Computed example of a mutant assay.
Amino acid sequence: MSYREHPYRDVPYLLNSRPGAPGTVDLHHSPLAFVHRGGDPARENTMAAFEDAVAMGYRYMEIDVRTSSDGVLVVFHDESLDRITDGAGRLSEKTWEELSALRLRASGEPLLRFEELLTRWEDVHLNVDLKDEASVEEFARLVEAHGAHDRVLAASFNDARRHRVRRALSRRTAASGGWVVTALIVLLGPLGLMRRSGRRAAEIDCLQVPISQGRIRVVTRGFIRRCHQAGLQVHVWVVDEPAEMHRLLDMGVDGLMTDDAAALAKVMTERDGAVWPQR
Score class of each variant (00 low, 15 high):
residue 139 F to G: 08
residue 247 R to E: 14
residue 160 A to S: 13
residue 201 A to H: 06
residue 103 R to M: 02
residue 273 G to N: 10
residue 5 E to D: 15
residue 198 G to I: 08
residue 156 S to H: 11
residue 258 T to A: 04
residue 158 N to E: 02
residue 137 E to P: 02
residue 253 V to N: 04
residue 196 R to Y: 13
residue 146 H to A: 06
residue 188 L to K: 01
residue 142 L to W: 11
residue 159 D to C: 07
residue 13 Y to N: 01
residue 186 V to C: 04
residue 278 Q to A: 11
residue 263 A to F: 05
residue 260 D to T: 12
residue 235 H to N: 09
residue 96 W to E: 14
residue 86 D to N: 15
residue 165 V to M: 14
residue 216 I to D: 14
residue 240 D to R: 10
residue 61 M to D: 01
residue 178 G to Y: 05
residue 114 F to A: 13
residue 91 L to A: 11
residue 244 E to Q: 15
residue 184 L to M: 15
residue 43 R to C: 03
residue 77 H to G: 06
residue 151 R to A: 00
residue 254 D to R: 04
residue 200 R to Y: 13
residue 21 A to M: 02
residue 67 T to Y: 08
residue 190 P to E: 13
residue 239 V to A: 00
residue 221 R to T: 15
residue 168 A to F: 07
residue 62 E to Q: 01
residue 23 G to D: 07
residue 266 K to C: 11
residue 72 V to K: 05
residue 115 E to R: 04
residue 110 P to A: 06
residue 134 A to Y: 02
residue 255 G to M: 03
residue 210 P to S: 06
residue 59 R to E: 00
residue 178 G to L: 00
residue 13 Y to I: 00
residue 161 R to W: 12
residue 81 L to W: 07
residue 133 E to D: 14
residue 176 S to L: 03
residue 126 L to R: 00
residue 102 L to M: 09
residue 92 S to R: 15
residue 278 Q to R: 05
residue 266 K to V: 06
residue 228 H to T: 08
residue 249 L to I: 07
residue 139 F to H: 03
residue 104 L to M: 11
residue 21 A to K: 11
residue 14 L to G: 01
residue 58 Y to H: 02
residue 259 D to K: 10
residue 255 G to Q: 03
residue 270 E to W: 05
residue 161 R to P: 07
residue 156 S to M: 12
residue 110 P to L: 04
residue 221 R to S: 13
residue 263 A to R: 05
residue 81 L to Q: 05
residue 226 R to H: 12
residue 207 L to P: 08
residue 127 N to A: 02
residue 199 R to Q: 14
residue 43 R to K: 12
residue 7 P to Y: 02
residue 84 I to P: 06
residue 164 R to M: 12
residue 227 C to Y: 05
residue 124 V to E: 00
residue 269 T to R: 15
residue 271 R to L: 09
